[in-house]
Design a protein around this nucleic acid. Structure first.
Length: 233
DNA sequence: GCGACAG
DNA sequence: ATCTTGTCGC
């Protein structure tokens, strides 16, 4: 869609990235916009290849009621930052941003594959992305980066707070009976209860939200298609 | 100094 | 995340 002025450079060193996170965390709003109506939910993801430095990104927008895709956009961008625990957004957001700009329709909420404030400096990829795009966002990760939580009941919908340094930074959420929980945390313009509710609503059948499932499938398809095209050179 | 460590 | 085959459980 529209191009917005970048909030900061992406060609930074890990040390500079950490400094940027400490500044950006001050801008995160842990509260949904008054009267937020979620009619469309989107998922973002990035796929990388072993030997190469190209990141394939994608954003898929779903109707929040039916969870049927209504729009999507992809991207292929050269990765300029390595994977460093705690600095994931500096590797993946530049890729997601290109797909985001190509989207013909804006969602009301964006769910990321990774954490929001359940992060060493409370600025995981979901928080950083929410700030960058100026949209309510949620982090939904498959494993913990920081914090601990108590045991959860076996039923779908059971939860247990994620505690980090004495603070509740997220929630372990069982989206499917007898299956490992996902870790939900607010990104930006979002609070924990709303984030948990939206993730559960987006995950009626499988462990991960339909948003990230669709985004994941899309970026993998992009990567394979690119690989096949390269084989015919 | 020793582990832990989203994707 | 990616690389990979089969295998266990509902």
């Amino acid at each position: 869609m529209e191009l917005s002025a970048p909030m900061h450079r992406w060609d930074v060193t890990p040390t500079e990235a950490v400094a940027l996170q400490r500044e950006l965390r001050e801008r995160v709003v842990l509260e949904p916009p008054p009267g937020l109506r979620v009619e469309r939910v989107a998922g973002a993801d990035v796929s990388t290849e072993k030997g190469r430095d190209t990141g394939f990104g994608g954003v898929v927008v779903l109707d929040a009621g039916t969870l049927v895709p209504v729009a999507q956009a992809g991207s292929a961008v050269t990765l300029g930052f390595p994977y460093v625990p705690g600095l994931l957004s500096f590797r993946e957001l530049p890729v997601v941003a290109v797909a985001w700009e190509r989207l013909s329709m804006r969602p009301d909420v964006l769910i990321f594959d990774g954490h929001g404030i359940a992060h060493p400096r409370r600025l995981g990829i979901a928080s950083h992305g929410g700030l960058l795009f100026g949209i309510p966002s949620i982090g939904c990760a498959k494993s913990l980066l920081v914090g601990t939580h108590g045991k959860l009941a076996d039923a779908r919908g059971s939860t247990s707070p994620i505690i980090h340094k004495g603070e509740v930074v997220g929630m372990a959420v069982r989206t499917r009976k007898s299956v490992q929980p996902v870790y939900v945390s607010p990104g930006h313009l979002m609070d924990l209860p709303t984030a948990v509710e939206l993730v559960l609503r987006a995950s009626p059948k499988y462990r991960e939200p339909e948003t990230t499932r669709h985004a994941h499938r899309m970026v993998n398809a992009l990567r394979r298609a690119d690989g096949e095209a390269a084989e015919l050179e």
